[in-house]
Design a binder for these strands. Structure first.
Length: 581
DNA sequence: CCACCTTTGAAGCTG
DNA sequence: CAGCTTCAAAGGTGG
């Protein structure tokens, strides 16, 4: 998206990237832009055609939801151009792969006034509340079916008065829920259809009450402690819940949880209605524990409640405690959330099914996301952590240390990785090019920055630098994010991936410079040592050599790239290459 | 059957 | 404080 900005900069993030880019020369930029625009237009057209009416409707609504911000520039755009941009944006956002609303559920983040539903004091802003309430009227709607189709009706209308029914589809986490249709076996009864839904895991009937939003997480004292972890519901029953539920199911309500407005909002937002057990009583009768709790052996409190504090603080011997203590998983970070959401889509798009390969794609896609989009996930992740901490006050990431087998990939990391990549990549050749193109140091920087930039981050994240606010003025590209985040760096830093560092070093150095001149540096680095693409630990066949690939995802590039369809377009993205110059 | 692979981010640990 | 390590998801793959 940011890339699109070139046109009018309706995208805030674009500015940032653009800045760096501008260094290269505006002329180029413009030229490229125009050219790319044309090309993109074609792509867009095709894509639009494919998407059919969905896009049109969504395009209208989207601006409102996602980019409500009055980008003055945008206004100046011609209608046509707007549409075009929007389409492009959509494609970019979705990578062209995802046609449906990418984050219908996160509108609150995008909306100017909703940008920070959470007031500084943690209270949910009125607007947000309203929004939330609107969103959840019909929780029982089965997302799986609806979402299954990527082209399912976009939330375009959502912006105005979304019919209740539609809301269900639009849950912010919808993607998480639905994205994995795979996860929902056909056999799975349409939850939305029946008043009572059996929890796949527990088999306990859940009553989806659209009207009971609050019930999910009753704030009332009595209800407190019984609030199920919302995240757990995110995941399709079939698939692992964000936090897997112990086989036996948890009988204990959640530990007392002081839910503040923000938390409640979080919960409500994050957990799909249909997923969330709706108990009129406000109790999660399903007895499903927080998703984070995995361990089969659950320590049951006398009162039948699983209190995190109890197990965490339990005086008992450490060993005993460990044994009994359910495994509480780490809260998912932004990228993990993104992965959960998008994986299915990526998988659907490409033949590859291996997670390693998919994750690579996702990683690139992640970098290609606009800061706003990433911000959504950062915000979500932040909330999740917050919720997690509240649910499990005594929990520490350290608790899970050693639970997993040690990895020793260091040894074979390099060789294995390459082999692996080679195997995996082929199937998705189609996909890869795109990904490659997408990923760029610049974008990566931006992404990194995004997290802090998030409005919420400003509020909550201590570490988060001042809200970029805007993304507008400050490019931030370089600013905040620690190199560590930088893809190149990350590769290097990590022992496993670093193996490739020999070449990587080159790339890394270039990458660093890339911050200012992403395209150039990238192109150079990749071209210089095509053997090891800067971003990838291992070389990607063919794609790496492709000119288009070499260039970083500059605004134009992305636009151009975006047409996912057009991976191997006959047009070699000449523009893209241009960046190399 | 389980570790590995892969990704980013967060948190913990170490020096 | 910087840097490194571990874990979170996920699913094919290989030992």
């Amino acid at each position: 998206m940011p890339q699109l900005n070139g046109g009018g900069g309706d995208e805030l993030g674009a500015n940032d990237e653009m800045i760096s880019f501008k260094d290269e020369g505006e002329q180029e930029e413009k030229t490229a832009e125009s050219v790319s625009a044309e090309r993109d237009l074609d792509d867009v057209k095709s894509s639009l055609v494919n998407e059919s009416e969905n896009n049109s409707s969504s395009s209208d609504s989207e601006p409102t939801e996602r980019r409500p911000q009055p980008r003055s520039d945008a206004e100046s755009y011609e209608k046509a151009r707007e549409c075009f941009n929007e389409a492009l944006r959509r494609q970019q956002d979705g990578g062209g792969l995802f046609k449906s609303p990418h984050y219908p559920g996160y509108p609150f983040i995008m909306l100017p006034d909703l940008a920070s539903p959470y007031l500084p004091n943690g209270a949910l802003s009125p607007t947000a509340r309203t929004y939330l309430q609107m969103k959840w009227p019909l929780l029982d709607v089965p997302s799986s079916a609806a979402l299954k189709d990527s082209r399912s009706p976009t939330p375009g209308h959502l912006s105005n008065k979304v019919p209740v029914v539609q809301h269900a589809h639009m849950h912010p986490l919808t993607p998480l829920i639905t994205y994995s249709n795979d996860h929902f076996p056909p056999a799975t009864p349409p939850a939305h259809l029946s008043p009572e839904i059996l929890d796949p895991k527990t088999g306990i009937p859940r009553t989806p009450h659209p009207s009971e939003l609050s019930p999910y997480y009753p704030l009332s004292p009595g209800a407190v402690g019984q609030i199920p972890h919302p995240l757990g519901w995110l995941v399709p029953q079939q698939a692992q819940p964000m936090y897997s539920i112990p086989p036996g199911g948890f009988r204990h309500p959640y530990p007392a949880l002081a839910m503040n407005a923000s938390m409640s909002s979080l919960v409500s937002n994050r957990f799909p209605p249909h997923v969330v057990p709706h108990h009129p009583h406000g109790l999660h009768q399903t007895g499903i524990p927080h998703p984070a709790i995995v361990s089969p052996a659950i320590k049951q409190e006398p009162n039948g409640e699983l209190s995190p504090a109890a197990h965490t603080k339990s005086p008992g011997p450490a060993k005993k405690e460990e044994e009994k203590k359910p495994h509480i998983k780490k809260p998912l970070n932004a990228f993990m959330l993104y992965m959960k959401e998008m994986r299915a889509k990526v998988v659907a798009e490409c033949t590859l099914k291996e997670s390693a390969a998919i994750n690579q794609i996702l990683g690139r896609r992640w970098h290609s996301l606009s800061r706003e989009e990433q911000a959504k996930y950062y915000e979500l992740a932040r909330k999740e952590r917050q919720l997690h901490s509240q649910l499990y006050p005594g929990w520490s990431a350290r608790d899970n240390y050693g639970k997993r087998k040690k990895r020793k990939r260091e040894n074979k990391a390099s060789s294995a990785a390459e082999d692996y990549s080679a195997r995996n990549k082929k199937p998705c050749v189609q996909y890869l090019p795109q990904e490659k193109m997408i990923d760029s140091p610049a974008s990566s920087h931006g992404s990194m920055l995004d997290s802090p930039a998030t409005p919420s981050a400003a509020l909550a994240s201590p570490a988060a630098p001042a809200p970029t606010h805007s993304e507008q003025a400050q490019p931030l590209s370089l600013t905040t994010k620690p190199e560590r985040h930088h893809p190149h760096f990350s590769l290097i830093s990590k022992p496993s991936s670093s193996s490739s560092s020999s070449s990587a070093s080159t790339s890394s150095s270039s990458s660093s410079s890339s911050s200012s001149h992403p395209s150039i540096s990238l192109a150079i680095s990749s071209s210089g040592s095509h053997s090891t693409p800067p971003l990838l630990s291992r070389p990607i066949p063919f794609t790496s050599l492709h000119p288009s690939l070499l260039s970083p995802p500059s605004p134009f590039h992305q636009a151009a790239l975006h047409s996912h369809h057009a991976l191997f377009q006959t047009q070699p993205l000449s523009l893209v290459t241009k960046s190399a110059d």
